[in-house]
Amino acid sequence: MIRSEQGRLTSRGLRSLVETGVQTGLGILALAPFVVLVGLVGYLIWVSIPVFRYMRWGFFSHIAWNLGNLYAYHPVLVHGVRVMPGAEFGAFAFLLGTGLTSLMAICLAVPIAFLLASAASFGVSWPWRNILAILVEMMAGVPSVVFGLFGFIVLGPAIATQVGPWLNHWLSPIPFFSGPVTSETNLLTATVTLTLMVIPIVATTTRVAMARVPRDWVDSARALGWTEHEVFWHVIWPHSRAALTGGTILGLGRALGETMAVLMVSGNALNVLPKNIYSGVSTMAATIAGQLDAALTDPTRMAVHALGTLGLILMAISLAVNLIARVVVVSDGQTDHAGGGLAHGIL
């Protein structure tokens, strides 16, 4: 199909038109990630402006979340913003709830995830380590409502009747751990449910890094007569430390943004701070999902905007966390490369 063009070296008109068309088309579609991100951030900032004008810094420090007197005849004008009389939008309880559930979940999840990664990459013998790796990845894919269901049906009752009273009995000298266990949906249930969801993420990230330690390194450590635990501590662990950090931050990101599972098991407490781990809480994400219906009844739209502000803060935190995770994981990748790089380069 070679057609002689008699030495013509310039491209034909149609061909260059197609070229330009393809490039332009792809370029426009490639704007999609920018459009989505800029759209989300821009829109949330836009709705947040009146909220901050009305609440000022009080948005971060107030505990009460109150739509105001919705039966009032007229909205009132405060700081140039129309709101219903008595409305108050304080996010402190949600910030605290998000922070507490996520951090506690991470503290529980990381040690377990570390052991899982160790077992799935190295610690247990052959068919089991593959089965374990598959199971962990499958758990990472289980939809969050299913974790919510499990937390609601299994963990909640177990915590209310067994774990909670037991913890209260043995740990009551520690202030935050003592108190009556009156509900199945509380801070502890939310934390344990989130833990289950975070473990697979941290474990998978770490396992992949551990499994990627070059075969020759492991072999040469074994060839020195080291046992499995010595090979693990001196060869595998130094290679995968950064991945555990990166995975932990990724897991934290998931815990911070988790909506459905928390909505189902946290108790969705409004206007109160948790007194102990057996109190109900609410998180920013769960509040947005749980309160949007009610917020729509506010004729001034301030309640909806206030939820958008929660979304903005949540997004800012999640983005910061994800960027940090990225930096950690990427810099890990580079050191990893430099480590094996010399030998690779020669090959």
Binding site: P214, D216, W217, D219, S220, A221, R222, A223, L224, G225, W226, E230, H234, V235, P238, H239, G339, L342, A343, L347
Partner: peptide, 30 residues
């Protein structure tokens, strides 16, 4: 025990990511 009496060197160099001294000292300390 077998491996302490029969050592092995691989195709690619496999220095552990530690100091030169530690590469050998650690082997002994283990």
């Amino acid at each position: 025990a077998v491996r302490t009496h029969i050592g092995m060197v691989f195709q690619r160099p496999t220095p552990f990511p530690r100091s030169i001294y530690d590469n050998i000292a650690l082997t002994l300390r283990v």
